[in-house]
């Protein structure tokens, strides 16, 4: 279980996270929903130790993560995998991009190759395995990054708007991968979105963020269908109209 408790984070005078708490269990998909600039990405970055919070606590399987030493932090990151909203690709082949995480873990070349191939097949990029990663489209690049994350078989997946660049067919593929990872492998999933429909399709629990504050939190069906807060209702209504 990944637990974030009372996380505060500021950039200069701007408070981006104001006392956010989140509990993500294995086998359940947690969704952070909210408009742009609400702090969704920052909370994932804090959970992946890419940002240090000003205050608060993170616990993974009952262990305090923020007090870990440099070596142990690397160990923690190797148990997690994050997919960024903006795909970051290495200047190498599609295959090598997926295998990078496995190489970093010092995995045997043969095993790493097999895992990378399986991950590429899962996201429908196997035929492009020899292509240069920089020649991929935005959607393909997004799927490539997901494949790289899945290949390392993490205990937790942190996904920042994982379907933002995808067409409907690929959105279905990616959502299915995420669902199977949580339900069949019992992995922890935290994903962010501003798309209520995606939250409805995927999430078990929802945390609604607005300007760095947790406005509402609870079971997905409850929060998304019968929001208690006025702001949640207004945001969701806006999404309904725009969506």
């Amino acid at each position: 279980m990944l637990l974030l408790r009372d996380i505060w984070k500021s950039y200069g005078v701007r408070e981006v996270l104001r006392g956010i708490s989140l509990e993500a269990e294995g086998g359940r998909i947690s969704c952070i929903i909210g408009p742009n600039g609400s702090g969704k990405t920052t909370i994932l970055r804090v959970a992946d130790l890419l940002e240090a919070p000003d205050s608060g606590a993170i616990a993974f399987d009952g262990n305090d993560v923020l007090s870990l030493g440099p070596e142990e932090r690397i160990g923690y990151r190797r148990r997690m995998a994050m997919v960024f909203q903006q795909p970051a690709l290495y200047d190498m082949s599609v295959f090598d991009n997926v295998a990078m995480g496995l190489r970093i873990r010092g995995m045997d070349k043969g095993v790493a190759g097999k895992r990378a191939e399986e991950a590429l097949k899962a996201v429908n990029l196997y035929d492009l395995r020899a292509a240069r990663a920089h020649s991929l489209s935005g959607g393909e690049a997004q799927r490539l990054c997901l494949a790289g994350a899945m290949a390392v078989e993490p205990e937790g997946l942190l996904l920042d708007e994982p379907t933002a660049n995808l067409d409907p067919a690929n959105t279905i593929i990616v959502e299915e991968i995420i669902r199977r990872y949580a339900k069949e492998k019992g992995g922890i999933v935290i994903f962010t979105t501003h798309n209520m429909f995606e939250a409805k399709r995927l999430a078990d629990r929802v945390l609604f963020l607005m300007e760095g504050r947790a406005i509402e939190e609870g079971e997905a069906a409850e929060v998304l269908n019968n929001p208690k807060g006025e702001m949640t209702a207004r945001f969701l209504k806006g999404e309904m109209v725009l969506g």
Binding site: D48, L50, I74, G75, R77, R78, M80, A81, M82, F84, Q86, A88, L89, Y90, M100, G101, I104, R105, C145, G148, V152
Partner: peptide, 22 residues
């Protein structure tokens, strides 16, 4: 080199030496 590539490498669990090599 884009900052996000550095962050992705750190996120993948790279040691400092691995990050420098990448």
């Amino acid at each position: 080199i884009p900052q996000r590539l550095v962050e992705r490498t750190i996120s993948l669990g790279a040691t400092r030496n691995q990050l420098v090599i990448v």
